[in-house]
Design a protein around this nucleic acid. Sequence first.
DNA 1: AATGAAATCGACCAGCA
DNA 2: TGCTGGTCGATTTCATT
Lengths: 171, 171
Amino acid sequence: MIDRTKTFDNLDGTDLEILEMIEADFDVSLETVAQKLDLSKSAVHYRVKKLKENGIIRGVTADVDPLALGLEMVAITDVSVSHEEGYSEDIGKKLMTVSGVGEVYYTMGDIDFVAISRVQTRDQLNDLIERIVAIDGINETSSKFVMEEFHDNQNVSGNLTQVGRELILDS
Amino acid sequence: MIDRTKTFDNLDGTDLEILEMIEADFDVSLETVAQKLDLSKSAVHYRVKKLKENGIIRGVTADVDPLALGLEMVAITDVSVSHEEGYSEDIGKKLMTVSGVGEVYYTMGDIDFVAISRVQTRDQLNDLIERIVAIDGINETSSKFVMEEFHDNQNVSGNLTQVGRELILDS
DNA sequence: AATGAAATCGACCAGCA
DNA sequence: TGCTGGTCGATTTCATT
């Protein structure tokens, strides 16, 4: 059995509950969290601080609505690369530097990268795809236009199965 | 010319700079932001509050590292649906209810949905795909396994082109 | 819309279980 | 090591311009 203790950094159920609450909404007051967990405010603060120090919380960020900035168009672009050229790491980073590209995934299979991009106008979309194609080592691209997207603020901690939760707590 | 005034809610350059800073890191102190913009702390606070009220900032959230919870596997699943069944909206929402599914995009083209999921084990991945296939109206799925992902905390406000910024400010 | 003062809340410290 | 209560400093709010 692989030792996963270090990975989970001895998270307990209380930590998980805190993570769920502040991943959904960091504006909950310490007091609200403390009351729900029957703890003092200091104790909650102390745990949050530790979660940040350990890198379990990577940061706290404002969630900006893309539509409010006119970013109405979302594209999902499949990218294949010519495998002689450099390392995937480099190409992934180069994709991220293209204005409008927000997420890049390096995948197994026929498609090598999947990039998710947001732009305001068709001109910007054209420009973005041109910039992607211009990257050294990129072979071919194929883009899908997004009509609607579904999200929530619970992607990580609040989206575990019961089994997944136990896997963390039992380590 | 379409009137985009309402969409951008009269954002000015100062608002954009604030958004860039707090989208990257909400832990910057009011004082730091105020100094960079030559404003009082209250003025910055007032603008942030307004940005929240107007929905431009949808919320403030803790960014939890999936790896810290053992969510080592990321899958991108292309889903096609049988078009007799209900509305896409319903299927998108149902996809989101599957434990592990974090983002869903409804797209134009041969593929109808793209789902991005995170799980800890192969068993969970199997289970997840079974749950997706079991949704009424879903025809076929095809999954890619993610080897590496690239992100930053500047997906929206900090990722605009110069032209994109002007489009907002000139409205 | 921005300011400064007053109230409230979060961050840190020393001591304790 | 993790928690408590108290203090200090930062943030939020409010009256005013």
